[in-house]
Design a binder for these strands. Structure first.
Length: 469
RNA sequence: GUCCCCAUCGUCUAGCCUGGCCCAGGACACCGGCCUUUCACGCCGGCGACGCGGGUUCGAAUCCCGCUGGGGACGCCA
């Protein structure tokens, strides 16, 4: 809790928010919360071509779902045009920027040529020293960067990273249409918003020296940088759609809990000794860049799944019920407007939370409880609801009907007694009953099922099965 | 191609900064067993790594150099 900290997450709205973005957001958020600082959300929508409103909506929805709350924003760069124009003018007047009339085609050609010769494909400075103004010709504004020396980027995670200025070129600040480019706005915005620490993906490290030069040219103090590693797919290639689901909301649809997602992503690159399970409070308390790894990490769906199972098991039933409810509706187990409240839904959870890896799985397994009509699995029916089962079911019905203390203990005593009388095994009795009550061979413990359904419903289902044989 | 980053079990990681406590610890996955009314859960056990080559040192996973490998950047994308 030393100096005030202000960080930001700045996604571009050109698609859904993916896992890698979430982790960047999370590290920013954790750092801010740990230091009692500010977390800003800024939408980098300077690319008119590809930015969409739907993306913005989805990004906000993802952040909310994951509980990554922001203190300022969401700012949108398209609404801040004025300040960019002003800063470009400033650089222009100070001789730190110039007009460039090279066409994209020309530049493309030069780049290819340079690359063919094995040279760095950078801008050759054709317009850097030109003094004439070509009225009416389209032009961009470029930054007149220093020509020699080196830039030292001081990274919190990697130490001092040195770049030779000769590797850099005069980047474009403003496009032909007058809109600013990323490397420029990011500097202006971060400085203007008072960002103290820029925490972002590794892929931005090589942009950083250019940005440092811009900070210097604009007389801004450079923020501190922390470039976190990227997330890779199982084949060690950059994580993309072909590795499966990469959008945050896709995980919500698949029935993952935000707590599991957050815990998983936090441990991807960050650690605190051998601890694997972290509450939000613990993460915030322990988070530090001192314990953040710099090597790239492979996304492991199995471990995410394990964490999801863990949180399904340990979240209090009523709380989990609130997260399960929309899934019950989306999977069609319940109709919207079902009228059940969380406490009613929560009743099935204790019997299911050790058997479901996701909320979707849990919803499917809870059908027997919410649907009054038993949906029979044909194979289960022919295998277990047989003539042999008839006398067994009959005894269960006879035993359950008058039972005074309708409890698991009493039911168990009854089952044991029937097994003994019939000279059979518990499995031979439990399976037919299970099929009669749930329609399938797989369910929670049979006594739990009976208790859950209640005596009345149990007897109805047992009788139906009995008569159908 | 050039520049930059990275390198411990299949995967996530602890250890590395401040060499000996590490013939390397934990977790996921996998395999075997136990428990058992189904399916799971759980419990117990097993398999499994310091990329390679040079140094420095009494001693290196830990420090230095090279190599190799992986990733990233080089856009009027962000």
């Amino acid at each position: 809790m030393s100096d005030p900290v202000k960080v930001r997450f700045a996604p571009s709205p050109t698609g859904f928010l993916h896992i890698g973005g979430v982790r960047t957001a999370l590290f920013n958020w954790l750092f801010a919360r740990h230091h009692g600082g500010q977390f800003v959300l800024r939408i980098e929508d300077t690319d008119h071509e590809r930015s969409t409103e739907e993306s913005i909506t989805e990004i906000l929805e993802s952040m909310k779902w994951l509980g990554l709350d922001w203190d300022e924003g969401p700012y949108r760069q398209t609404e801040r045009q004025e300040i960019y124009t002003q800063k470009v003018d400033q650089l222009f007047k100070e001789g730190k920027a110039y007009r460039c009339y090279c066409t994209p085609e020309e530049l493309d050609r030069k780049r290819n040529e340079a690359q063919k010769k094995g040279l760095k494909p950078k801008y050759d400075g054709t317009c850097r020293e030109r003094t004439d103004q070509l009225e009416g010709s389209p032009s961009v504004i470029r930054f007149k960067a220093p020509l020699e020396g080196s830039v030292v980027v001081d990274d919190l995670l990697r130490g001092k990273v040195v770049f030779d200025i000769e590797e850099l070129d005069d980047l474009i600040l403003q496009r032909t249409d007058g809109s600013p480019t990323y490397n420029f706005v990011v500097v202006v915005d971060d400085a203007d918003m008072g960002i103290t620490h820029v925490v972002r993906g590794d892929d931005h490290l090589s942009n950083t020296p250019r940005q440092c030069l811009l900070y210097d040219a604009l007389n801004f103090t450079r923020p501190k940088f922390a470039h976190i590693s990227m997330i890779l797919g199982q084949d060690k290639a950059r994580l993309s759609k072909r590795h499966g689901a990469t959008s945050a909301l896709a995980y919500r649809e698949m029935g993952y809990l935000p707590a599991a997602m957050i815990n998983y992503l936090a441990r991807l690159g960050w650690s605190h000794g051998d601890q694997e399970i972290f509450s939000r409070e613990e993460m915030i308390q322990h988070f530090s860049f001192d314990s953040v790894n710099t090597s790239a990490a492979v996304f492991d769906p199995d471990k995410l799944s394990w964490l999801n199972e863990h949180y399904i098991k340990t979240t209090p039933p009523e709380e989990l019920a609130r997260q399960l409810e929309p899934v019950l509706v989306s999977t069609g187990v319940l109709q919207s407007g079902h009228g059940l409240d969380a406490s009613e839904i929560a009743k099935v959870i204790p019997s299911l939370n050790e058997r479901a890896k996701t909320l979707v799985e849990m919803a499917e397994k809870s059908k027997f409880y919410f649907n009054k009509e038993v949906e029979f699995d044909e194979k289960a029916k022919t295998k277990f609801l047989t003539a042999n089962a008839r006398p067994l079911l009959e005894k269960v019905i006879a035993g359950l009907s008058p039972m005074e203390n309708f409890s698991a203990e009493e039911i168990e005593t009854l089952f044991k007694k029937i097994v003994e009388e019939e000279g059979t095994k518990l499995g031979k009795l439990a399976q037919p009953v299970r099929v009669a009550l749930t329609g399938t061979t797989v369910s929670p413990g049979i006594y739990d099922v009976i208790l859950l359904l209640g005596r009345e419903q149990t007897l109805v289902r047992l009788n139906n099965a009995f008569q159908a044989i």
